[in-house]
Amino acid sequence: MSFVTSVSTGAIRAGTSVMYASLGEVIAQRAGIINLGVEGCMLAGALAGYIVTAETGSPYAGIVAAFVAGGLLATVHAFLVVTRGANQLASGLALMFLGLGLTAFFGRPYVNDQITPLRDYPVPMLSEIPYFGPVLFDHDPLTYAVFPLAGALWWFVFRSRWGVMLRAVGESTESAFAAGLHPARIQYAAVAFGGALAGLGGAQISLAYTATWVENLTNGRGFIAVALVIFAMWNPLRAMAGALLFGGAVALQLQLQARGVGVSPFLLDMTPYLLTIIVLLAWAQRGQDAFPAGLNKVFRGTG
């Protein structure tokens, strides 16, 4: 495979998990809720998916479990910040540690276990196309699904009636409430859905990418996902691009090393954060425009 093909394929493989988590966080933040516990939701999804796959032998049952587990854990966050009016940042961090601790504890018996992995399904014909074939059409189902999902979420946020409601809540819960919406319900749904997507991201690592469970399997990818939301300016398609850039940085450094080119893995590991800072610097004003005005606020009304 050519260098470009290898790096592009690697970018998609390595970027998918972060893409799921980042898309989910875009939705949650569009409803005005920051969830710093994405990492915890990813881990919950990764482990739940792994356990169910190990017990049932079906990675598809595992995917469902991952979706549910990520969503449930995020619901704890929604309860704390929406119903109880807790500080979003504190609650999110608590959620991250809760996810880390719970999965470490319940994952014990599954370390060094083996599962039927979610395997790659090369698309007949298409995967034979030179260059583009292997890059786009030789992946696992979770990877195939994430790209249409990003497009669908973009349409949902910016073109659908539901998206208007979601954004209205994120801009001003009071106004949304006055307009007859139920901000709390929408926020619950957005946060739970965001967590569920993070769960899928975790499952992509534990079921497809590595077919492994170890403690802290996600290694901080949940935080990268949160950083990417700012980079993406709360736009699902930009989040997709950001996740691919992250995956590309990972793949690039490994592909360069495999070719004997000296490159510092420490330096390239900073790429997603550097990108975020650069975007914040360059588009500070536009970034503020996209920033959901109600983000991190506590809505004290009813709903």
Binding site: Y209, L217, N219, V250, A251
Partner: peptide
């Protein structure tokens, strides 16, 4: 051929390294 991952345990990065070497 050597690849340094700069972490003691990141299974996803290890898996990607293996694919890079295989390439």
């Amino acid at each position: 051929t050597v690849i340094f991952t700069a972490t003691w345990c990141d299974p996803a990065k290890i898996a990607e390294s293996v694919k890079s070497l295989k390439d």
